[in-house]
């Protein structure tokens, strides 16, 4: 991934206003504009303005409690489900504010899927029904179409070969890594435009993690992926762009290779070299 220096400057974090790019190098998928978030009186995100490119993997790193998860939960309006949670600012999905009046959060979540830290398949449903659940919510009843979508999603999640003969088995009978890939397949089945992943590998062993990292790389042809991780190596391996968050503020954002090899902010450097975190 090589990007001009000019792009790098545009992405710089101190510039909190939405920047108008005269010559967009690549289309933007999600932009947050002065995003602030609270849990009660706890101000967890402060003026975060981030621009996420389409068909790329963007990693969000930072120490625990820095607001990484809250940031992506604001993108698909999951944050507001927590009692006493508040948001201000804007999140643009293809230039449309998902927080605009009259926008149904349900429709936002269908366009921006999410995978969670702990695998959470529906334990009372079969593998097949887990994947088909979202489509059935959308009213899809056609068996042939459901079959195709289930196979396609499981393929994308690198799970099809392992479960194709046991689609009727319970979703919770799979191993932890398989459960997480099942959750990825479930999220992909509704054909979202963006996939948010909230520390998807933190509960998994290295082999399961490697599989998921491989599939993430594979996904960016069709999806925009935003992954939160506390594992810097993982961010370096899977992402094209990396954002470093500290105490709810966006400290630095840029091309992953540049950010890791040549951080511009002292805080970033200290975090990357393990001086704190």
């Amino acid at each position: 991934m090589t990007l001009g220096i000019q792009v790098d400057k545009e992405l710089k974090a101190e510039n909190t206003k939405p920047i108008l790019i005269s010559r967009p190098v690549e289309p933007l998928k999600i932009q947050t504009d002065k995003l602030n978030a609270w849990f009660g009186n706890n101000h967890v995100l402060r003026d975060v303005s981030l621009r996420i490119k389409e068909n790329h993997v963007t990693a969000i790193i930072g120490p625990s409690g820095c607001g990484k998860s809250t940031l992506i939960r604001c993108m698909n309006r999951m944050h507001e489900l927590v009692p006493q949670a508040k948001v201000s600012g804007a999140v643009l999905l293809d230039d449309a504010n998902v927080y605009a009046k009259g926008v149904d959060p349900v429709s936002v979540r269908r366009k921006i899927g999410m995978v969670f830290q702990k695998p959470n398949p529906f334990p009372t449903m079969s593998v097949y029904d887990n994947v088909a659940a979202g489509l059935k919510l959308n009213g899809e009843r056609d068996h042939a179409r459901l079959d195709r979508a289930v196979k396609r999603s499981l393929d994308l999640a690198f799970l099809w070969e392992e479960v194709k003969h046991e689609l009727d088995k319970s979703g919770s009978s799979l191993s932890g890594g398989q459960q997480q890939r099942l959750c990825i397949a479930r999220a992909l089945a509704v054909e979202p435009e963006v996939l948010l992943m909230d520390e998807p590998c933190s509960a998994l062993d290295p082999i399961a993690t490697a599989k998921i990292e491989e599939l993430i790389t594979n996904l960016k042809d069709q999806y925009t992926v935003v992954i939160v991780t506390h594992n810097m190596q993982q961010a370096a391996r899977v992402s094209d762009y990396t954002a470093f968050l500290y105490l709810g503020q966006l400290i630095e954002y840029g091309d992953t290779t540049n950010l890791f090899e040549n951080p511009k902010e002292e805080l970033t450097e200290r975090y990357l070299t393990g001086k704190f975190g």
């Binding site: 489900l81 269908r110 959470n120 529906f122 659940a133 089945a189």
Partner: peptide
């Protein structure tokens, strides 16, 4: 567990 509710919300329920 609330993770089950989140699972449903996240696929647009």
């Amino acid at each position: 567990p609330s993770s089950q509710r989140e699972a449903a919300y996240s696929i647009g329920a």
